[in-house]
Amino acid sequence: KEMRNAYWEIALLPNLNNQQKRAFIRSLYDDPSQSANLLAEAKKLNDAQA
C-alpha cells in the first residue's frame, strides 16, 4: 500500500518531467522498501524545479 501511494504521489508531481517520474517509479519497483525515501527525494526535486 505504501508503494502504491508513493507511486501516485510521484506520478502526480507537477514539476517533474516524464523521464524523471519514470526513473523514480522504476526505483520504487526495484526496492519497494525505499518508498518513503524515494517519495521524499521526488518531492525535493519537484520543489527545486518549481
Rank of each mutant, 00 (worst) to 15 (best):
K1D: 15
K1C: 05
K1F: 13
E2T: 05
E2Y: 03
E2S: 05
E2M: 04
M3I: 15
M3K: 06
M3G: 07
R4A: 10
R4N: 08
R4M: 15
N5L: 14
N5C: 08
N5P: 03
A6N: 06
A6C: 04
A6P: 05
A6H: 09
A6Y: 06
A6Q: 07
Y7H: 07
Y7C: 15
Y7F: 04
W8N: 12
W8S: 08
E9H: 09
E9L: 03
E9N: 12
E9S: 13
E9M: 15
I10N: 00
I10L: 08
I10E: 00
A11F: 14
A11L: 14
A11R: 15
L12F: 13
L12W: 10
L12Q: 15
L12C: 06
L13Y: 05
L13T: 01
L13I: 01
L13R: 01
L13G: 00
P14S: 09
N15M: 07
N15K: 06
N15H: 11
L16Q: 00
L16R: 00
L16W: 00
N17R: 08
N17A: 06
N17L: 08
N18W: 05
N18H: 13
N18R: 05
N18F: 07
N18D: 08
N18S: 15
Q19D: 13
Q19R: 08
Q19I: 10
Q19P: 07
Q20V: 05
Q20F: 02
Q20D: 03
K21L: 03
K21W: 02
K21E: 01
K21F: 03
K21C: 03
R22T: 09
R22N: 12
R22G: 11
R22A: 05
A23E: 07
F24S: 01
I25C: 06
I25T: 03
R26Y: 11
R26P: 00
R26G: 04
R26E: 10
R26T: 09
R26A: 10
R26C: 06
S27Y: 10
S27I: 08
S27G: 11
S27N: 10
S27F: 09
S27E: 09
L28E: 00
L28S: 01
L28V: 07
L28K: 00
L28H: 01
Y29N: 08
D30R: 14
D30H: 12
D30Q: 15
D30V: 14
D30G: 09
D30N: 15
D31T: 04
D31R: 08
D31S: 07
P32Q: 04
P32D: 03
P32C: 03
P32T: 03
P32E: 04
P32I: 07
Q34T: 08
S35D: 03
A36H: 13
A36M: 09
N37I: 15
N37P: 02
L38S: 03
L38R: 05
L38A: 05
A40F: 06
A40N: 10
A40R: 13
E41P: 00
E41Y: 11
E41T: 06
A42D: 00
A42Y: 02
A42C: 03
A42I: 02
A42S: 06
K43D: 02
K43G: 01
K43R: 15
K43M: 09
K43F: 07
K43E: 04
K44G: 07
K44H: 09
K44F: 12
L45V: 12
N46H: 02
N46V: 01
N46E: 01
N46S: 03
D47E: 13
D47F: 10
D47G: 10
D47S: 14
A48N: 13
A48K: 13
Q49N: 11
